[in-house]
């Protein structure tokens, strides 16, 4: 039952994020989407994914709040209660297929690797290369800032 409620909340908040007129309220609804996604992960036992989702979501939302406040044009009219009700109804209707329908068919072959095995044995190269890319970016930013400071003197 709780999974159905979370799915309903996920779809409704996604609808609100897309179709609300005010950008700040859209970003707030997107925060709800990320929160419901993380809760879905936790309930399904994917705690690591929930933590990553939460961390990435917080960063994205912080930047979106700032850019939304700075860059967006002011809407001519506010969202009416009728439109809000229509959006909520649309979200509920769109979440019904996910709640009541199911895709039949067995899963294919899959490995029995745990999260740690999968991360280090199967995706180890990716993880190391990503760390290398992030390190390169950090060094590049440091060099650019250093040159800028020296050039400014």
């Amino acid at each position: 039952m709780i999974l159905e409620i979370l799915s309903l909340g996920l779809i409704v908040s996604a609808c609100l994020a897309l179709f609300l007129d005010e950008v700040i309220y859209s970003v707030a609804a997107l925060a709800g989407t990320f929160l419901f996604t993380a809760l879905l992960y936790v309930i399904n036992g994917a705690v690591f994914s929930a933590i990553f989702q939460f961390a990435v979501g917080v960063g994205t939302l912080a930047i979106l709040f700032l850019s939304g406040e700075m860059l967006s044009d002011k809407p001519l009219k506010k969202t009416s209660p009728q439109k809000m009700g229509a959006l909520l109804g649309m979200g509920v209707v769109l979440s019904l297929p996910a709640i009541f329908l199911s895709v039949s068919g067995a899963a294919g072959t899959y490995s029995e690797a745990s999260f740690g095995d999968a991360l280090w044995n199967l995706r180890g190269t990716d993880v190391v290369l990503e760390a290398l890319v992030i390190l390169t970016v950090a060094v590049g930013i440091a060099i650019v800032l250093y040159e800028k400071r020296n050039g400014g003197k």
């Binding site: 996604t37 399904n44 994917a46 990553f52 989702q53 999968a118």
Partner: peptide, 28 residues
């Protein structure tokens, strides 16, 4: 939202099968 849909598919399918690989792919 599109990216969230893709990650939900990865993680939920993997966790329902009891495979850790989905979570590892999620980092990428």
């Amino acid at each position: 939202l599109i990216a969230t849909a893709a990650t939900i598919n990865f993680v939920m399918l993997a966790s329902s099968l009891g495979v850790g690989l989905g979570q590892a792919f999620l980092i990428l």
